[in-house]
C-alpha cells in the first residue's frame, strides 16, 4: 500500500510537511512506523529542520551517512548552507547511482532547479513512480518557466490517479492562480479550506488564502488572512512580502514592512527584484537625461 495514501501511516507527516507544519513534522512520533517507512519519515524530519534553518546541524548529523536518501538530504543541507558547488556535485553523484529513488528524485529535482538546470530537474522528476511530491515539483518548475500549459497537463494527469491528495489540490491551485478567471475562486477555496480548518491552519496556508484573495481583488479579506498568518509566524517572509504588495495596492505606506522584510530575509525575491528594477529605472531614465534642459 502506498504509505502516503489516505489510509497510509505516513499521511499525517506528509500532509503536515506540505501544509507547512514543520514543527509537527519534527515532533512526529515515528516509532510505530513500518521499517520501510522509517527512512521516509526521517527524510521529512531532516528536510523540515533544513527549512527551519538547521541545515548546518543536519549536515553535521549526517556526516558519513551514505544511504541514497540521507546522502541526498545531506547534499540539500550543504546546498542550503551555501556550499552550492560541492552540494551540486554530491547530488549529481547520488543521482547517477540511484536515480530511481523517490527521495533522490525529489531532492535532486530541487537542487537542480535551484542550480538553474530546470530541464534536467524535470527530466529527473519525470521518472517518478507515482510520487506526488515529484509531480508538485514538476508543476512548480513548469510554472517558474511560465509554462502554465505543461503544468496544467501535469496536474490533470495526477488528478486521474490521486484526486484527493493534498499535493494535487495545492498544485492545481498554484496553476489556477496563473490561469485566473474562475480558477482564482477555486484556488481560493482550496487554500481557504486548509487555512480555516483548525488542524491545517498554518502561516503558509493562510498566505495562500491571502494571495488568492489579492488576485480576486478582495483586499480587505486578504489583509485579514495575512494578519492571521503573521500572528502565527511574525517573521514569515512570504506573509511579509505579500503584506507589502497589499499595502501598495491599498495605497498605504509600506516602508516599515519593507524594512521588516529586509531584516528577516534580505535575499527575498521581492527585494532583489525591486533593487534590480530600481537600477533598471535609473539606467532607462538616464537615456533621456540629455534631453532635460531647465
Amino acid at each position: 500500500m502506498d504509505p502516503f495514501s489516505s489510509e497510509g501511516e505516513l499521511l499525517s507527516i506528509h500532509n503536515a510537511f506540505h501544509q507547512g507544519q514543520l514543527t509537527t513534522v519534527i515532533e512526529h512520533n515515528s516509532s510505530a512506523l513500518a521499517p520501510e517507512n522509517v527512512i521516509k519519515a526521517q527524510v521529512y524530519k531532516y528536510r523540515a529542520r533544513i527549512a527551519l534553518g538547521e541545515a548546518e546541524e543536519v549536515s553535521a548529523e549526517l556526516e558519513g551517512e551514505d544511504s541514497p536518501e540521507l546522502a541526498a538530504v545531506k547534499a540539500l543541507a550543504a546546498y542550503t548552507t551555501g556550499n552550492t558547488s560541492i552540494a551540486a556535485a554530491d547530488i549529481a553523484k547520488v543521482i547517477s547511482s540511484s536515480s530511481k529513488n523517490g527521495t533522490v528524485q525529489v531532492i535532486g529535482g530541487i537542487i537542480l532547479h535551484l542550480e538553474g538546470k530546470s530541464d534536467d530537474a524535470v527530466a529527473l522528476l519525470s521518472e517518478h513512480q507515482g510520487n506526488l511530491e515529484a509531480v508538485s515539483l514538476i508543476v512548480q518548475i513548469r510554472l517558474c518557466q511560465n509554462r502554465t500549459d505543461l503544468a496544467l497537463k501535469e496536474v490533470q494527469a495526477a488528478k486521474r490517479w490521486a484526486q484527493d491528495s493534498l499535493l494535487v489540490n495545492l498544485a492545481e491551485s498554484w496553476v489556477g492562480l496563473r490561469v485566473g478567471g474562475e480558477k482564482y475562486q477555486q484556488a481560493y477555496y482550496v487554500f481557504e479550506e486548509l487555512a480555516q480548518a483548525p488542524s491545517t491552519s498554518t502561516a503558509p496556508t493562510l498566505v495562500g488564502q491571502a494571495v488568492a484573495e489579492i488576485h480576486l481583488g478582495r483586499l480587505e479579506e486578504a489583509e485579514v488572512a495575512l494578519q492571521q498568518a503573521l500572528a502565527k509566524d511574525p517573521k514569515h517572509a512570504q506573509a511579509l512580502a505579500n503584506a507589502i504588495v497589499l499595502s501598495v495596492l491599498a495605497g498605504k505606506d509600506n516602508s516599515d514592512q519593507l524594512s521588516l522584510l529586509r531584516n528577516t530575509m534580505p535575499d527575498h525575491p521581492l527585494l532583489t527584484d525591486l533593487e534590480q528594477k530600481s537600477e533598471l529605472f535609473d539606467r532607462a531614465a538616464a537615456k533621456y537625461a540629455a534631453k532635460i534642459t531647465a
Binding site: F17, H18, G20, L22, R47, A48, I50, A51, L76, T80, I110, E133, S136, L137, Q140, L170, W174, L177, P204, V207, G208, V211, I214, H215, Q238, A241, N242, V245, H268, P269, L270
Partner: peptide, 8 residues
C-alpha cells in the same frame, strides 16, 4: 504576489 509552494 509570492505564494509559498514546495518546501525548499
Amino acid at each position: 504576489t509570492y505564494l509559498p509552494a514546495s518546501v525548499g
